[in-house]
């Protein structure tokens, strides 16, 4: 059992939790993820490690309610327990393994979209700890959904916040900010790291390819075990089949087949929708409206 020592709602449907998991906290690196299973009947949900405290044996996770399982997880309070937490999983970010002098020579741009700010944070923090100032673009739909702004500001060289509706910071999508920084404000980047919704990463990669900036993305496909034994998370990268849980989750964004990855993410959409409706409406939902497929 893994105790939740802090549970906080960061924004509408976005939650942060600090969980006791000493083995994971001791060894984890930026870029890696873990899997939680809340109770006996729960599913295994992969989440990027957002922060860690090696001394206290804590790891931080951030998640958004997207279906029945995450909705159930959001009900957990401080002092409750996850039945299972396993990790760290996946490969650490490339720069963690590289010669630090080489890393220091490069100009990095981090692009965080929505809840993707959570996995970006430990990477930027790692950079700061190694004396590297990086530029960070944080994008959100609206001001209300912006998370971890202060945390990111504390570790970033420059933080550029943008909202789709212009309610805070710059206005427009993250791609517009990248374009402005490079083309209007004369910035140069050697590497871009983009983490967020699949569609955002796809369009960032399309742009950075034009701009000639090598780009790393962190993929979030469907996973089951997260240890390489099932292939549920397989993705096409440069025409080769890779398992995101063991070969990734970070890949060269210019080689990822995003269209296929997005279609694979939809595989259980109907089942997830049904589970959500069961949770919200209990036995009252019989699918009679004909819109959702319902429960036969």
């Amino acid at each position: 059992m893994y105790k939740i020592v802090k549970a906080e709602c960061l924004a509408d449907k976005i939650y942060l939790m600090d969980v006791e998991a000493p083995r994971i906290a001791k060894l984890c690196q930026p870029g890696e993820f873990l899997i939680v299973k809340m109770d006996q009947v729960g599913e295994r949900i992969p989440l990027t490690i957002c922060d860690y405290d090696r001394e206290k044996g804590l790891v931080t996770i951030v998640f958004q309610i997207v279906g029945a399982s995450t909705a159930r997880m959001a009900e957990l309070k401080e002092g409750d327990y996850f039945q299972d937490v396993v990790g760290p999983l996946g490969q650490p970010s490339e720069f963690v393994k590289e010669d630090i002098e080489e890393v220091k020579k490069r100009r990095y741009l981090f692009v965080a979209g929505g809840v993707g700010s959570a996995p970006v944070y430990p990477q930027v923090k790692w950079m700061k700890e190694h004396g590297i100032d990086v530029d960070v673009i944080e994008g959100s739909k609206t001001k209300d959904l912006l998370i971890l702004e202060d945390e990111l500001r504390a570790v970033a060289g420059n933080l550029y916040v943008t909202t789709d509706d212009g309610s805070y910071g710059r206005s427009g999508m993250v791609t517009k900010v990248i374009q402005d920084l490079v083309e209007q404000e004369g910035k140069h980047y050697d590497v871009c790291v983009a983490i967020g919704p699949m569609i955002m990463m796809k369009f960032v990669c399309k742009l950075t390819k034009e701009l000639g900036i090598p780009t790393i993305v962190s993929l979030n496909p469907i996973m089951v075990d997260g240890t390489g034994m099932c292939g549920a998370c397989r993705v096409s990268v440069g025409g080769e089949v890779k398992f995101a849980c063991v070969d990734g989750p970070e890949f060269d964004g210019h080689l990822v087949d995003f269209d296929q990855a997005m279609k694979r993410q939809q595989m259980y959409k109907t089942e997830e929708g049904r589970a959500m409706l069961r949770l919200q409406e209990g036995k009252t939902h019989h699918g009679g409206c004909g819109h959702c497929g319902g429960d036969e």
């Binding site: 009947v41 729960g42 599913e43 295994r44 029945a68 399982s69 159930r72 089951v224 075990d225 034994m229 099932c230 292939g231 549920a232 259980y268 089942e271 997830e272 589970a275």
Partner: peptide, 23 residues
């Protein structure tokens, strides 16, 4: 699917039962 994924969902995660979350 790989047989491993299919069987893991069904056997370990008990996806064949309605009262378990894994689809």
């Amino acid at each position: 699917f790989s047989a491993n994924e299919y069987l893991t969902r069904s056997n370990l995660m008990k996806a064949f039962r309605d009262d378990y979350d894994t689809p």
